[in-house]
Design a protein around this nucleic acid. Structure first.
Lengths: 210, 210
DNA sequence: TGAAAAATAAACTTATAGTATATTAATCAT
DNA sequence: ATGATTAATATACTATAAGTTTATTTTTCA
């Protein structure tokens, strides 16, 4: 088999396995999906699964990686057209919100939560850096704001990037987890609450705005 | 045995078990600590452990509950003396930060992360409401701010409470997780970064502050 | 056709939460 | 004190799932 064809086949197999795993993770959750399930659903033997991935965590991380790229692309597209800092900021928030709604499990991971807490695996999850891609996007966002003079003047670029990411992702995370509480206790829908929060938070970036 | 004595004994046993579990959780982590470990360390039989707690998760939740009370008390004490809204806000942040530093595992849980993802247990964790106690404390804080006219005038009390909690806890959580990143990439210590973030965030609560 | 590579089947190992059961020890009411 | 009730324990068991091993089958291609 030519090297070309072989590589293509391997990619094909990997994709099949990942697709099957994605489907099962979505339907039944990550913990409840077993390696045997994945093998059966992808129509490979378990041994083959372990040829292509070294552990369940490895599979999970590959999927997270894919989704992270998808998210980054969505944000990039959504922001590309806008030049106004404020509008970009809201678009960015919107993208994160829809991503969280569609893929809550992967969003959690992106935000740093461990989905997989096995005694076996070493939990070598990417504690790295919140997704390099997304960090870069926020950086560009803030740079734009600084250049346009849309932001307060005591901004530290890098620190502000992390600050925005922490707060915005935290707001979304908790809004999702406390949806019932918001519905019942606050006089708002989750969407209204998010708008309210994002708007308040925005003011911390621009400084006085009368 | 009188009901009084019996109850005291039961409390004694529960406490012993919880103390042992706490020690092991702290030293080895929650996942790596087995029920057998806890039984041995507390010097009870495993059967007895299951008399007092229905699952590992039950033990864990009891501990979380205890710590949550501790935290709430610390905040309450720290805030009690202050009447200024801004100072209270910073004290509140400080309390959370030290708590996170001392008990990162319990802090994560408080913020909503699952430490225990077993297939067995139903994960009935307290998705409830971020610790009723703490919510009440933040509510009092915001009420104080509103009364003193220290806050912007378009404040929705309950929504703002959740907003503060989400953002502040998110900032702390991620600052802890990205400590290395902050040290190496930002030109700051973690403490400086936190001060910076809390200060910026504060401005979103008071509105224009020239 | 036969050697090398890829894929598979099936049984096995290990680890741990939780259960079942039978036994022993402590307590109390009469 | 004794017999019944209750608490505690020892021990063995079940169930589950990740990951490994080994031997076998299938595919590829020189």
């Amino acid at each position: 088999m030519g090297a070309r064809k072989k590589e293509a086949l391997e990619q094909f197999n990997r994709d099949n396995i990942l697709t099957a795993a994605k489907e099962l993770f979505d339907s039944y959750g990550i913990e409840k999906t077993t390696m045997d399930d994945i093998a059966k659903h992808a129509d490979y033997s378990k041994s083959t699964i372990y040829v292509y991935f070294k552990s369940k965590e490895d599979i999970f991380n590959s999927i997270v990686g894919e989704y992270m790229e998808v998210l980054a692309m969505q944000i990039r597209q959504s922001i590309a057209k806008e030049k106004d800092f404020e509008k970009c900021y809201y678009k960015f928030c919107e993208c994160l919100v829809s991503f969280e709604e569609r893929y809550p499990r992967y969003y959690s991971t992106l935000v740093g939560e461990n989905q997989l807490t096995s005694r076996r695996s070493k939990n070598s999850l990417m504690k790295q850096d919140m997704g390099r891609e997304i960090r870069i996007l926020i950086t560009e966002l803030v740079e734009k704001g600084i250049k346009n003079n849309d932001m307060r003047d005591d901004i530290e670029l890098e620190a502000t990037v992390l600050y925005i990411w922490s707060a915005v992702s935290g707001i979304i995370q908790i809004a999702s987890r406390k949806k019932d509480y918001i519905d019942s206790r606050l006089n708002m829908t989750k969407e209204e609450y998010l708008r309210y929060s994002f708007r308040m938070f925005f003011d911390s970036l621009v400084g006085g705005r009368l």
